[in-house]
Design a protein around this nucleic acid. Sequence first.
DNA 1: TTGTGTTAGTGATATAATTAACGAACTGTA
DNA 2: TACAGTTCGTTAATTATATCACTAACACAA
Lengths: 210, 210
Amino acid sequence: MKTLKIPEATIIRLSVYSRHLTDVDRRGIITTSSGDIAEGVGVSPAQVRKDLAYFGEFGTRGVGYNVKDLRQHILRILGLSSDWSVSLVGAGNLGLALSSYKGFRERGFIITSIFDADPKKVGTMIGNVEVLPIEQLVEVAKQNLTQIGIVAVPAQVAQEIADQLIEAGVKAILNFAPVILNIPPQIELRNVDLAVNLEVLTFNVGAQRF
Amino acid sequence: MKTLKIPEATIIRLSVYSRHLTDVDRRGIITTSSGDIAEGVGVSPAQVRKDLAYFGEFGTRGVGYNVKDLRQHILRILGLSSDWSVSLVGAGNLGLALSSYKGFRERGFIITSIFDADPKKVGTMIGNVEVLPIEQLVEVAKQNLTQIGIVAVPAQVAQEIADQLIEAGVKAILNFAPVILNIPPQIELRNVDLAVNLEVLTFNVGAQRF
DNA sequence: TTGTGTTAGTGATATAATTAACGAACTGTA
DNA sequence: TACAGTTCGTTAATTATATCACTAACACAA
């Protein structure tokens, strides 16, 4: 088990490459190159090759990469060669947006259960999934062998929900609540803070001051 | 005009610090330290001091930082000392989620107009803002002196919408569509790709392979 | 077969970011 | 005033990441 410390930036780019390759493949293109990919996603060709080099040799010198092959390789690297069972907690506007987001299912993320604390929402259908009461979270998520939990609840209850997801056995949590969650180290955690993104923009708009 | 190249990671952390300080302030605490902040947001004390040092000296040695002062300083650095006029394009589930997101208004991001291409949505109210037809985007956004555009439309039309936002004079674009937008360099752009976040998680869950 | 052009993979170099270490400046006490 | 205890601001060291430059491998044409 060699742990060769792969930069997170590399993983993010691989994800982008794979989506770009999906496009290229749809256009019927058979072969591509690091230069093509670089241009398509806005990085340098050397960067593309370096990123791929962490995981093996996927191209042919003088020729380039086979689009379908490379795409498949990257998907396997990212862990997308099989589906993931996802539990969504919080059926508010954000939860609704996430559950209807096509990009998830396309990439193999299947929302197998949805929970909400609001009795008015419990029992309603979102897509083909029924909203269940939050009290059933641990039990149902465990039954479904849920691997990923999405936290789309108010900040005050986010930690509590995260604890329950972990109790249910999830391996990873995607957190949309703007709080620092306390999570055991073996659970993967990623925070998405929508306001932060706007603030990076406003900083940059006025950044000539510095 | 010295451009001292501030890491984006620093800006993101400043945003997190400021939110943490808002909490601390609400709890009535007057003084804090780099160590306290570090613990509260999960970074090192040296990191906190380094990040602040890019912008000046805000603390007192042997004492720490005044919570209210530091918070205000950071908000000003981030460009949040006055409101921003935001235009939201796309009133689907994601648009709805964004428009109802409390965190935006709290930080001074005011959604002043919402546009959608679907005639069924045009005329409906989201909060206290009426959904307008996409054809009025350029005109209305210009009138409102819109500074920021949020793109929450399908990928196929995202570039077209971005072009119109720029024509309307926005300075920054937050893009939720999974495409690389072609934007003049003086316009600030940030992409939020929801699927990428899940894919970083799935990579890490299986990362012992590497 | 030889030469030209192309492109991947990779080690070396350069840049950037984080962490560590330490002197300076303040508080409070005696 | 002197001293002990803090904590900032900053420089130096370390680590991480990205870029560059070169070599190896292939295609194709003459």
